[in-house]
Design a protein around this nucleic acid. Structure first.
Length: 599
RNA sequence: GGGGGUGUAGCUCAAUUGGUUAGAGCGCCAGCCUGUCACGCUGGAGGUUGCGAGUUCGAGUCUCGUCACUCUCGCCA
């Protein structure tokens, strides 16, 4: 007989009756009737009921049948009497009558309940993550994550992709987020950086003749957390394809994502090909480059209708170069005064000066602003929105950028409040045709996304078009308003690369200095190539229907990028610093803490 | 770095307008209980209301500061 078990806690059934078995697990719950004791024994696979008769010598030997202790039982599998069958349990037709017992690991009093589904302070959960991970919902999320990643590998390998590891200790990249740095002992004053993504390595693999690369790649970025962004590190299904076009990348990803989402969720999934939405159209209609297409509301431009109207607040915005955006919402004219007041408050909370609206009720327009608008204008507005009796149109007046941002937020809020968002579907779309360049706050031309993207018109466009009019073969994949990834057809032509950087104000020496590997590699016959890297954590988050990314990561850091279980980041010994040729220069506040800890 | 929210027993929460000794469920401890399955019943312990100041006859409640967590803006090629 095995040292710990002949069966798991999830597999015994009627067919095992009369067998003597050995099972080990955690005490999930104890029901002590004085004359008889029931224990639900739990492991990764399930629950099995153990019955202990008080005549057994170990019955009194155990002082506390404390939950979450690990125990091993030898006993006989017996059939439960019909009235005692538990249909909620896979093993509910049988129970194990204990004959021998061994305590494997006693549990102290636990800080929060494991067996019961009870909300709990997240700091405590992170400090006791090993307990939290025993709990069903988190445990299941990690199982799901494992299955999803395993399936990703199968699907990618099946499509002819090879998984290749790339370095974790690499060089700092000049673009993008702040890097995590690792000081070099051998080279005083020099640093490795953890990769923000294996971007340059995968492009080098393409120039090395590997046709299709993928990797479940760890990425490290020193940026602040969000609900859908874990600080420090995250994983991408990183991929790159040689001699490939944008359509080739779309085809692969549509197949992989469609299969993953249909296999691991019961929700209805968009069938490929997914909708392709040009960036400009997305901004016009949704005010966002990651629209939630479950929400049917769209924004329209009503700027011209307000240009010469008597409503000075709007006319003034238009006169100064701003826009008026409108969202038509069907059937909500009957909503309460509070609904509209709340919407105005909400709009103000996201930076709007106000939120105008027109309501059509019983053939009449009701609105604080209607009196400023002529009948003709009102008719034109009505036609623009395609609205009638019972409908409402909301209006946002601001500079274009502000109006889009506020409009996007109002659209989301209306979608939720009016319950327009179907929770049981996954809506995918590609955002395509991103501009290659944009203006930064100081009015300087800079790359709007990836500097390695291929401009759509090639050398001709780069030389002839105004920088802001140049589009890139740059794309995002969006699902239910979550950006899963950016990708691009890469610029594999070193001359074109130098030109593209030149427009953003970097001369050739900068390209050579900052991206020496790619610049050199592309001199020796680079294949045209393209790729993308969908976020693994976000995919699992959507599949698990979790609003928070930490619920799909086994050991996440908190918002301040601390691992509360391991105590990272932590102090190191002075000799470690000395080996690395480092001296600390701490801000005043941290210096105090350092002194206290040293004492 | 900025803004919002939260902070009361080990955990989840309650406590009227500022007013008696800050309560409940779960957990914990003791006892009872032979068919439960979130077992049940009886009793008990457990509190610097995050921390510090202020207003007041009186503060869990109001004000200011501070700390922590969280959501968010900045940031995320």
């Amino acid at each position: 007989m095995h040292r710990y078990r002949t069966h798991t806690c999830g597999e015994l059934g009627k067919e095992n009756i009369d067998q003597t078995v050995k099972i080990s697990g955690w005490i999930n719950s104890v029901r002590d009737h004085g004359g008889i004791l029931f224990i639900d024994l739990r492991d990764h696979y399930g629950l099995t009921q153990i019955v202990i008769d008080p005549s057994q010598p170990f019955y009194k030997g155990v002082e506390h049948w404390r939950v979450e202790s690990t125990v091993c039982f030898i006993g006989k599998v017996v059939s439960r009497i019909p009235e005692a069958v538990n249909s909620k349990l896979a093993t509910g037709e049988i129970e194990v009558v204990a004959e021998e017992m061994e305590l494997l690991g006693e549990a102290a009093v636990i800080p929060f309940q494991v067996a019961k589904d009870e909300e709990c302070n997240e700091t405590l959960r992170l400090e006791y993550r090993f307990l939290d991970l025993r709990r069903q919902s988190l445990h299941n999320n990690i199982i799901l994550r494992s299955k999803v990643i395993s399936r990703m590998r199968e699907l990618m390998t099946g499509l002819g992709f090879m998984e290749i590891q790339t370095p974790i200790l690499t060089n700092s990249s000049p673009e993008g987020a702040r890097d995590y740095l690792v000081p070099s002992r051998v080279h005083p004053g020099k640093f490795y950086a953890l990769p923000q993504a294996p971007q340059q390595f995968k492009q080098l693999l393409m120039t090395s003749g590997f046709d299709r690369y993928f990797q479940i790649a760890p990425c490290f970025r020193d940026e602040d957390a969000r609900a859908d962004r874990s600080p420090g590190e995250f994983y991408q299904l990183d991929m790159e394809m040689a001699f490939a076009t944008q359509d080739d990348v779309f085809e692969v990803n549509e197949e992989v994502l469609y299969k993953l989402f249909t296999e691991f969720s019961d929700k209805q999934v968009d069938k490929p090909p997914f909708l392709r939405l040009p960036f400009l159209e997305a901004m016009e209609k949704y005010g966002s480059d990651k629209p939630d297409l479950r929400n049917p509301l769209i924004m329209q431009d009503a700027t011209e209708l307000f240009r010469d109207c008597d409503f000075k607040a709007f006319a003034g915005v238009v006169a100064s170069g701003g826009v008026v955006k409108t969202i038509a919402a069907k059937g909500c004219a009957g909503k309460s005064r509070k609904f509209f007041d709340d919407m105005i408050k909400f709009a103000q909370s996201v930076g709007a000066k106000g939120l105008g609206y027109l309501r059509w009720i019983d053939g009449e327009v009701q609105s604080p602003i209607a009196k400023f608008l002529s009948d003709e204008t009102l008719a034109q507005i009505k036609e623009l929105g395609g609205v009638g009796d019972g409908d409402v149109m909301f209006f946002i007046a601001d500079k274009l950028k502000g109006a889009n941002e506020i409009g996007a937020a109002v659209r989301d809020e209306l979608g939720q409040r009016l319950e327009l968002i179907d929770p049981d579907v996954f809506k995918f779309c590609w955002i395509v045709d991103f501009p290659m360049y944009e203006l930064d706050d100081e009015g300087k031309v800079e790359f709007s996304h990836n500097p390695f993207s291929m401009p759509q018109g090639g050398m001709k466009d780069i030389e002839e078009k105004a920088p802001l009019d140049i589009l890139a073969f740059q794309y995002d994949i969006v699902c239910n308003g979550t950006e899963l990834s950016s990708g691009a057809v890469r610029n594999h032509n070193p001359e074109l690369m130098v030109k593209a950087f030149d427009i953003a104000g970097y001369d050739q020496s900068v390209v050579e200095a900052k991206f020496p590997a790619l610049h050199r590699a592309f001199q020796y016959g680079a294949p045209p190539h393209a790729g993308i890297a969908p976020g693994v954590d976000r995919i699992v988050m959507l599949l698990a229907d979790e609003p928070n990314i930490r619920e799909v990561i086994a050991f996440p850091m908190n918002q301040r990028a601390q691992d509360l279980l391991m105590g990272a980041p932590g102090n190191v010994e002075h000799n470690q610093l000395r080996d690395l040729h480092l001296k600390l220069n701490l801000p005043k506040k941290a210096e105090k803490e350092e002194t206290v800890e040293a004492e």
